[in-house]
């Protein structure tokens, strides 16, 4: 089973993603509500895929991505983005993000993206 780490500062979004991914057969390894927590949890949990929100307190998604890549250059991070944030996603991709999902989430798209990135 593919282990997923969900990173988002709103509980609602985390719950939403959790539901989508859980019903698609992913193992929800853990949840983080900011970048700093995400980096910590990544070290501990060694998830297969991370869904990373971009705008978050403490440490944003881009910074967290950089840190995670330092720990594990092969880390598979999927950015969570919204219309208007294209530039930031592009930056993330240049930094090694492997995919992106667009809010509002469409369940099939989210599942497809994560399955592809995790190579299931």
């Amino acid at each position: 089973m593919v282990k997923v780490l969900i990173v988002d500062d709103t509980a609602f979004m985390r719950k939403l993603l959790k539901n989508i991914l859980f019903s698609a057969g992913f193992d929800i390894a853990g949840e983080a509500e900011n970048g700093k927590q995400a980096v910590e949890l990544y070290k501990q949990l060694k998830p297969d895929v991370v869904t990373m929100d971009i705008v978050m307190p403490e440490m944003n998604g881009i910074e967290a991505l950089k840190e995670i890549k330092k720990i594990d250059p092969n880390a598979k991070v999927v950015m969570c983005t919204a219309v208007g944030q294209e530039q930031m996603v592009k930056t993330a991709i240049k930094l090694g993000a492997k995919g992106y999902i667009v809010k509002p989430f469409q369940a099939p798209k989210v599942v497809e993206e994560l399955k592809k990135v995790a190579k299931v």
């Binding site: 219309v83 294209e86 991709i93 240049k94 667009v102 798209k109």
Partner: peptide, 14 residues
Amino acid sequence: CQMKGVRGLLILET
């Protein structure tokens, strides 16, 4: 496809 430009970049980076 959502954000075709981003997808294009992702493909090029890949």
